[in-house]
Simulated assay, not measured.
Amino acid sequence: MMKKRSFVKPLSYVERFYRDSADSRSMVSVMVKVKDTDLHILADRDVSKKAQELALQYRLQIEDYIRCVPRFEHSLTPLSPDPLAPPIVKAMLKAGEKTGTGPMAAVAGSIAEFVGTSLLKSYCSEIIVENGGDLFVKKDREATVAIFAGESPLSMRVGVRIGATKMPTGICTSSGTVGHSLSFGRADSVTVIARSTPLADGAATRLGNEVGRERDVDAGIKRALDASRLIDGLSGIIVVCGDKLGAVGDVELVRLGSGSNT
């Protein structure tokens, strides 16, 4: 019930062509890669040097913790809180506890948020950090994020609009048909919106597992949406499976053309 991402050896690279569709007008695009952490950052100034330092810093904190607590990397179930853990590890443990997943289910969203929040403190006032399809977003105006759902006919044709007053926020997507993350579901995408990006990441994995591999797609989507109501702190959920879509919560869906308008 988690996204299993190895910190021992790099995972196979998945071409993230959807990054090309991000609207970078008035924002500086930065790519940061540290082992299998692969960030695309849009900010109102060049933050490349500091972003690289932060990505390395937070990865090292997680890697050091794994060396001390090896089960942290591979557990498929929540682990107990650790008051001595670094803040990013505490965030992952908390997300796992709330969503019923292993802590590594929240690793991508946690790195995105911690890097983004750190940059906002001193280096920029607007930022989008994307890490494997998981987003931390803080902008001064509304933003529309396209939903990438693999081969679904709805992929990149539907987006979710986020108002400026609802930011910063996390927008995270899990898929049972795209990418290298471990999923036991069949959804093309489960997108979760929450103030906490680690929580959104863990919840996306958890709810993606609810869309089972049986033929009744409608039942699977409904099960995921129903399960989302049991996770405190989520703002909205969008599930795409084939040509079907379901959503609950504070979600403003928009029809898109052939790309995102972030």
Rank of each mutant, 00 (worst) to 15 (best):
M1S: 09
M2Q: 06
K4A: 05
K4C: 03
V8C: 11
Y13W: 15
E15I: 15
Y18I: 03
R19H: 15
S24F: 10
S24G: 09
S24T: 12
R25P: 01
M27G: 05
M27V: 12
S29D: 06
V34S: 00
V34C: 02
L42V: 04
L42A: 01
R45I: 07
R45A: 10
K49W: 14
K50A: 10
K50Y: 10
A51W: 07
Q52W: 08
Q57K: 14
Y58N: 08
R59G: 01
L60H: 11
L60W: 05
Q61G: 04
Q61M: 14
I62E: 09
D64L: 11
Y65L: 03
R67Q: 15
V69K: 14
P70H: 11
H74G: 10
L76S: 11
T77D: 14
L79F: 14
S80M: 13
P87W: 09
K90T: 08
K90S: 11
L93N: 09
K94P: 00
A95L: 05
A95D: 03
T101V: 11
T101W: 06
M104P: 10
A105W: 05
A105I: 02
A106D: 05
V107A: 03
V107F: 01
I111E: 00
A112W: 01
A112E: 02
G116P: 13
T117Q: 14
S118N: 13
L120D: 07
L120P: 07
K121C: 06
Y123V: 01
Y123A: 12
I127Q: 02
I128P: 03
I128K: 10
I128F: 14
V129L: 08
E130A: 06
N131W: 04
G132I: 05
D134Q: 08
L135F: 13
F136W: 09
V137R: 02
V137K: 00
K138L: 05
K139E: 11
A143Q: 15
T144D: 10
F148I: 04
F148H: 14
G150P: 11
S152A: 07
P153C: 04
P153D: 06
S155T: 08
M156N: 10
R157S: 09
R157N: 12
R161M: 15
I162K: 04
T165R: 15
K166P: 11
P168F: 04
T173A: 10
S174E: 02
S175K: 00
T177Y: 04
H180F: 08
H180R: 01
S183M: 02
S183F: 01
R186Y: 13
R186K: 15
A187K: 06
D188S: 11
D188M: 07
V190I: 03
V190P: 03
P198M: 02
G202Q: 03
G202I: 00
T205S: 07
R206Q: 09
E210W: 04
R213Q: 13
E214P: 02
R215L: 11
R215W: 13
V217M: 12
V217S: 06
G220A: 09
K222M: 13
L225K: 05
D226N: 13
D226G: 02
D226R: 11
A227D: 01
L230G: 06
L230W: 06
L230I: 05
I231Q: 01
I231K: 07
D232H: 05
G233Q: 01
L234A: 01
S235N: 12
V240A: 02
G242T: 05
G246L: 02
G246Q: 09
A247Y: 08
D250G: 02
E252L: 07
L256T: 11
G257S: 12
N261S: 15
